[in-house]
Amino acid sequence: MFLTELSPLAQRLLQQPIAFAGGFCSGLFKLNLNEEPLSAWLANQGYTPDSSNDGNDNSGNSGPQSISIE
């Protein structure tokens, strides 16, 4: 079961090792893909980041919510 979860990761690593290493490092250093110079380099490579993967919640809720328990 553990190997089936890692197989897509290994497959991507073997297909494009440089792109995988770049994505891994950007995640490791928590780089924002929308900031310069990274966004300009990604645009030159033909990649446009999705708005759904940027970690922002567009539902209008910001901050903690209060609830009441009866």
Rank of each mutant, 00 (worst) to 15 (best):
14 L>C: 03
42 L>E: 03
41 W>D: 09
59 S>G: 04
9 L>G: 00
4 T>A: 07
8 P>V: 00
10 A>P: 10
34 N>W: 15
35 E>M: 13
48 T>K: 07
54 D>C: 08
67 I>V: 12
14 L>D: 08
30 K>A: 14
65 Q>W: 04
65 Q>N: 12
26 S>I: 10
5 E>S: 06
15 Q>P: 09
57 D>Y: 07
28 L>P: 08
44 N>V: 08
56 N>I: 15
25 C>G: 11
65 Q>C: 07
2 F>A: 08
30 K>G: 11
47 Y>H: 10
63 G>W: 01
46 G>Q: 15
27 G>N: 11
37 P>A: 05
55 G>S: 07
17 P>L: 01
17 P>C: 00
36 E>R: 12
1 M>E: 14
70 E>W: 12
36 E>S: 12
65 Q>V: 08
46 G>I: 06
24 F>K: 10
40 A>D: 15
50 D>R: 07
69 I>A: 10
68 S>V: 12
11 Q>R: 09
25 C>A: 11
49 P>T: 02
49 P>M: 05
27 G>C: 13
18 I>W: 02
69 I>P: 09
29 F>M: 15
54 D>A: 08
5 E>D: 05
3 L>V: 10
30 K>H: 14
19 A>K: 02
46 G>Y: 10
4 T>Q: 08
1 M>A: 11
12 R>A: 07
30 K>S: 12
21 A>K: 02
43 A>W: 07
13 L>Y: 01
15 Q>V: 05
10 A>E: 14
55 G>I: 13
50 D>M: 09
7 S>D: 03
33 L>N: 09
23 G>T: 00
32 N>G: 12
49 P>A: 03
38 L>N: 06
24 F>Q: 06
